[in-house]
């Protein structure tokens, strides 16, 4: 486990506008890193810089120790990527497209091409012209293209865009498999938050060009206090009791009881108190926060995020 991809203080200014601001993070081999942020946060811009499509205004990016600025060819030879939509030559077949890219990397033979085609499940249609492909099929072809040369780093900008649920699941399984078995470092950006939760080991949240948080997925989801709903009566009295017990926690009345952002350990204390004050307890429900809630909370940009 070592940082294969390293971003150090990366900034990008276009037309005087600071689009990426001092971004630093590392991605290790064998992990899937999720790159999360609302529309226009700068995910695609960052990915473009990592693969050398656009220059850096300041800072540096290294891949396996090679700087993308100084040693582009060495650095990029370790990378497979899809940047936004994987546009292909529409007038050629999927196979001919892959052969184009195969010729541009060392040591990619026809067997390897066939193997990758099989992996992404395009064997049946690979000899049809790309213009006859559906969006999902193009996405698969894009993935195939990025895997041809057995890269150490895989970078996918919204790879599940346009895939059906089965396809999304397939990609997710592929990515997990590639990270574990081939020890790849994988960077994925996506709007489908629920999916990031299932696919990624770590998640970095970017907003307005700044990285505001990097956390392990599990910590991330559990990081916040969950809220609990208690079905109790009489509820007004219960609220008073609860507020006396936990003066710092905000509690509120609901239709049939009270609710509040309690910690797990608070629950037995509260129950004991209710029992001693002869308040009836009918049920206790934990409302756990999803990544999506957390994400919205952190970015605080509710209206702009595409929901899963």
């Amino acid at each position: 486990m070592s940082g294969v991809v390293k971003l150090q203080d990366v900034s990008k200014t276009i037309n005087g506008k600071r689009i990426i601001d001092s971004l630093s993070f590392e991605v290790n081999s064998g992990e899937v890193f999720g790159f999360l942020g609302p529309n226009g946060a700068g995910k695609t811009t960052t990915i473009r810089m990592i693969v050398g499509l656009i220059g850096l205004s300041s800072g540096d990016i290294t891949i396996s120790g090679y700087s993308i600025k100084e040693n582009f060819v060495k650095a990029i030879s370790q990378v497979g990527a899809i940047v936004e939509n994987p546009e292909m030559y529409k007038f050629m077949s999927g196979y001919q497209n892959l052969m184009q890219f195969a010729r541009m990397s060392k040591g990619v033979n026809k067997e390897k091409v066939d193997e990758v085609v099989e992996l992404v499940g395009l064997t049946d249609r690979i000899h049809d012209k790309v213009k006859t492909y559906s969006l999902g099929m193009r996405q698969r072809l894009g993935l195939a293209q990025s895997l041809l040369h057995d890269p150490k780093v895989l970078i996918l900008d919204e790879p599940t865009n346009g895939l059906d649920p089965a396809g999304i699941r397939e990609i997710r399984d592929h990515l997990r498999m590639l990270a574990k078995e081939k020890d790849m470092a994988i960077i994925v950006s996506s709007h489908l938050l629920s999916e990031m939760e299932m696919m990624c080991d770590r998640i970095g949240i970017i907003q307005a060009g700044r990285l505001i948080d990097v956390q392990r997925v599990r910590d991330f989801v559990n990081g916040a206090e969950n809220s609990y709903q208690l079905e109790v009566s009489p509820k007004d009295e219960a609220l008073l009791v609860a507020q006396q017990l936990f003066p710092t926690i905000k509690m509120s009345l609901t239709d049939n009881g009270i609710a509040g952002q309690l910690k797990k350990d608070d629950i037995p204390l509260l129950v004991n108190e209710f029992v001693s004050k002869e308040i009836n307890i009918y049920g206790i429900k934990e409302i756990s926060k999803t990544l999506e809630d957390r994400f919205l909370e952190v970015t605080d940009k509710k209206g702009e995020v595409t929901h899963a």
């Binding site: 693969v51 050398g52 499509l53 582009f72 060819v73 060495k74 990029i76 030879s77 990378v79 990527a81 940047v83 936004e84 939509n85 994987p86 546009e87 292909m88 030559y89 529409k90 890219f101 541009m104 990397s105 060392k106 293209q145």
Partner: peptide, 14 residues
């Protein structure tokens, strides 16, 4: 125009 420039320029070729 085709957008293929993105895939063309991320090969290990200057």
């Amino acid at each position: 125009n085709w957008g293929t420039i993105k895939l063309l320029l991320i090969r290990p070729i200057s």
